[in-house]
């Protein structure tokens, strides 16, 4: 155990955790906006998985991480559109829709991947490099953790205040929240609830797809089935444990990411506790967080309630 607590390993755990947090943070912020608009989207895991596969295919085909990220965003939006059609237009139960979509995504990505690979070996590529911020990256300890990361990590961290301000201070943010709190009010003002819910889903799913792309580009050199490994679900837990507030959601995401990073390092360092027990940590912690943090005051009043126009 003590090997894990040496300064170098702790440092390495934190640096890797920021990368891991990026994946979950994108999805969690996306889900936060979606849920504030009243859609309880349980299809995050599937959306991320689709983002992963599409990013992998484009990266393997073109070698361009930018194209891969854009494609994954597009794929995420298609996923959001399907989920939106079912929840907003058809008014299928939100939970059922999400569960169904995850199963669809799991099957589709598996088939797509297998028929792409055929009998051969799946192509791989080298993962993307970090972009140190000149000057700041030289600060001891914090510099390595915060300013020697991937470009998308900076973007994810900056998205937290941006989304907080968007939700609180802009008209469209207010309207998005109204769709989740009091849709009749929006309707009375002559504004469409469906439009805002679709917009939130498209935005949220795009972010989730981008998170999937980052997982592929920064951590894996090739796709494997169900590579998202529950990160989409952890994003949903982060939103609930964060009481639907951006900053707290990020805090929950960081807890999961640090535990995840700890598990990876435990395998590398060779601790006497079997590594599988470390791998369980984020999942156990997610249940623990939900038991400990019981406040649901930030939950939108009409979250998960299909809106029927009058």
């Amino acid at each position: 155990m003590s090997e894990l607590l040496s300064p170098e390993i702790l440092m390495s755990i934190m640096v890797a955790a920021m990368g891991g947090a990026t994946v979950i943070l994108f999805a969690a912020l996306g889900e936060l906006v979606t849920e504030r608009a009243g859609i309880w989207n349980m299809g995050v895991e599937g959306t991320m998985l689709v983002g992963c596969l599409v990013a992998y295919l484009v990266m393997a085909g073109t070698g361009s991480p930018i194209l891969a990220s854009i494609a994954a965003i597009g794929a995420g939006m298609v996923a959001g559109l399907i989920i939106g059609f079912m929840t907003v237009t058809l008014r299928v139960d939100h939970f059922v829709t999400g569960l169904g979509f995850n199963l669809l995504a799991s099957g589709l990505t598996l088939f797509w991947f297998r028929s792409y690979v055929g009998g051969g070996k799946p192509p791989s590529y080298s993962t993307i490099d970090t972009v140190p911020i000149p000057g700041l990256a030289d600060i001891p300890i914090l510099g390595q953790i915060l300013f020697n990361q991937h470009l998308l990590t900076y973007i994810a961290l900056l998205s937290v205040p941006v989304i907080a301000v968007f939700l609180r201070r802009t008209t469209f943010g207010l309207e998005t929240r109204a769709a989740g709190e009091n849709p009749q009010f929006l309707e009375a003002k002559g504004l469409s609830v469906a439009t805002r819910q679709y917009a939130a889903l498209l935005f949220g799913s795009a972010l989730t797809g981008l998170g999937g792309a980052f997982l592929m580009l920064a951590f894996a050199d090739q796709f494997r089935p169900d590579i998202s490994g529950g990160r989409g679900w952890l994003a949903i837990v982060a939103v609930i444990a964060g009481n639907w507030k951006p900053l707290r959601t990020m805090a929950a995401v960081l807890i999961f990411a640090i535990l995840d990073s700890l598990a990876v390092h435990a395998q590398g360092v060779g601790v006497d506790v079997p590594y599988q027990f470390f791998l369980m940590l984020p999942y156990v912690a997610s249940i623990g967080l939900l038991i400990l943090i019981r406040s649901r005051s930030g939950q939108p009043a009409k979250l998960g309630v299909p809106y029927l126009r009058h």
Binding site: I82, M86, L90, R91, V92, V96, T97, G100, F101, L103, L104, A105, S106, G107, L108, L110, F111, W112, F113, R114, S115, G118
Partner: peptide, 25 residues
């Protein structure tokens, strides 16, 4: 054929979404 067995889980997922939609419509 060249079709991987993974076709079946994909097909099951597709059928599920159509059935869910149909049962609501």
């Amino acid at each position: 054929s060249d079709i991987p067995p993974a076709l079946v889980p994909a097909m099951q997922g597709i059928l599920l979404l159509f059935f869910l939609s149909a049962s609501v419509i």
